[in-house]
C-alpha cells in the first residue's frame, strides 16, 4: 500500500471535531457582536425615563456611526492626526539616535561612559512619562535661561531664553524623545548582544576599526533583532503622544476630546480617533513587514512570502482542493 502512485489507497484525513466546534462558536459570536454594532440598546437608559425623552431614545442607535464618520475627516480631527504623526516621528527619531548612542556607551570600556548610560536608562525608564512631560513643560520656569560660557565663572558667550524657545509642542517632543531613548537603547543593546562575537573578531582581523565593525558588520545584522520591538515602540509611541493634550497640544485624541466636550458625543468621537489610530497602525505594520524582509537577507535560506503571495497560495490551495474533490466525485461511480 502506498499513499500515492498508481496503486494509491484512499487516505482518510484525521477529523478535527474540536476544531470544527470551535469554529462554529467563534463565527456565531462574531455575527452576534457585529449585530450589536448596528442596533439599538434593548433596555431604556436612565436618561430616557422622562416621558418627553422616551420617543427620541427609542430611535437612538447604540453607536452613532453617522457622527463617527461626520467628524472622521473634519479639519479638527485631521489637524490632530497631523500633530500626532509629527510628535511620533520627531520623538521616535530622537529616541532612535539617543538609544543607539546610549547602547554603544553601555558597551564602552570606560566606566564613566557605561555608568552614565546605565543611569540615563535607569532614570528615564523609572519615572512615569507623564511626569517627564509635565517636567519639561515646566522647564521654562525651572531654568528660565541657559547661558553658554566658561563653567563656574561669570564669563558668558550667549544666553538662550528658554521661556521663548521651548513651546508646549517642543516640550512634548523632548519628553517623549528622551523617554523613548531609554527604552530604545535596551532594544539596540539586545540586538548587539545577539550578534556572535566571531563576527566582530573576523571584521577586526581584516583590519576594520571598532567603528567600521559596528557600522558595517554588527549593526546591519542586529537590525533583524532590533526591528520587531521597534515596530512595537513606534505603535506604542503613536498612542503615548495622546498624553500631550495634558500640556495643551491637541493631537488626535485631544482634538476628539475637544469636539465631544462641545457635543457630548464622547463615545462616537473616541471611535473616530480610534479608527484613525488603527489605520496608521495598519500602515506601519505593513512597512515593518517589508523592512524585516529586507534585513532578513542572508539570515534565512528562503525569505518568507509577502502577504499577497500568501493570499495567492491560499487561494490556489483552496482551488486545488475543489479540483480534487470534483475529481474524486467523478471517480466514485466506477
Amino acid at each position: 500500500m502506498t499513499i500515492n502512485g498508481d496503486d494509491a489507497a484512499k487516505v482518510v484525513p484525521v477529523r478535527h471535531y474540536g476544531r470544527w466546534v470551535g469554529m462554529v462558536v467563534v463565527v456565531v459570536l462574531l455575527v452576534m457582536f457585529v449585530q450589536t454594532l448596528f442596533s439599538r440598546p434593548s433596555f431604556t437608559p436612565l436618561t430616557c425615563s422622562t416621558s418627553n425623552a422616551v420617543r427620541s431614545c427609542q430611535h437612538e442607535w447604540r453607536f452613532g456611526w453617522d457622527v463617527v464618520f461626520r467628524y472622521f475627516t473634519s479639519s479638527e480631527i485631521l489637524q490632530g492626526l497631523v500633530r500626532t504623526l509629527e510628535l511620533t516621528i520627531i520623538a521616535m527619531a530622537m529616541g532612535i539616535v539617543i538609544g543607539v548612542v546610549i547602547a554603544i556607551m553601555r558597551r564602552s570600556q570606560s566606566r564613566l561612559l557605561s555608568s552614565t548610560a546605565w543611569t540615563y536608562t535607569w532614570f528615564f525608564r523609572g519615572t512615569p512619562v507623564l511626569v517627564q512631560l509635565l517636567f519639561w513643560f515646566a522647564f521654562n520656569a525651572l531654568y528660565p535661561a541657559v547661558s553658554v560660557g566658561v563653567p563656574f565663572t561669570h564669563v558668558t558667550f550667549f544666553v538662550l531664553n528658554i521661556g521663548t524657545t521651548i513651546t508646549a509642542f517642543g516640550s512634548a517632543c523632548i519628553a517623549f524623545g528622551l523617554n523613548e531613548g531609554a527604552y530604545f537603547s535596551e532594544i539596540v543593546r539586545a540586538g548587539l548582544l545577539a550578534i556572535d562575537e566571531g563576527q566582530t573578531e573576523a571584521a577586526i582581523s581584516i583590519g576594520m576599526t571598532r567603528g567600521q565593525t559596528l557600522r558595517l558588520i554588527v549593526l546591519p545584522q542586529a537590525m533583524r533583532v532590533i526591528l520587531p520591538p521597534t515596530g512595537n515602540e513606534v505603535i506604542s509611541m503613536l498612542k503615548t503622544t495622546s498624553l500631550a493634550s495634558a500640556v495643551g497640544v491637541f493631537e488626535l485624541l485631544g482634538a476628539a476630546g475637544n469636539i465631544s466636550a462641545a457635543n457630548f458625543k464622547t463615545i462616537d468621537l473616541l471611535i473616530t480617533a480610534s479608527l484613525w489610530y488603527l489605520i496608521v497602525t495598519t500602515i506601519l505594520s505593513i512597512g515593518q513587514f517589508y523592512l524585516e524582509r529586507h534585513y532578513a537577507k542572508g539570515a534565512l535560506r528562503n525569505p518568507p512570502p509577502t502577504p499577497i503571495q500568501r493570499i495567492r497560495d491560499d487561494l490556489e490551495g483552496i482551488l486545488s482542493k475543489f479540483h480534487t474533490a470534483r475529481f474524486a466525485g467523478a471517480d466514485a461511480p466506477r
Binding site: G198, A203, I206
Partner: peptide, 12 residues
C-alpha cells in the same frame, strides 16, 4: 590574515 574555526563569514 586569519581563518577561524567557525568561519565567521559576514552573514548579511
Amino acid at each position: 590574515g586569519m581563518v577561524f574555526q567557525r568561519f565567521n563569514l559576514f552573514q548579511h
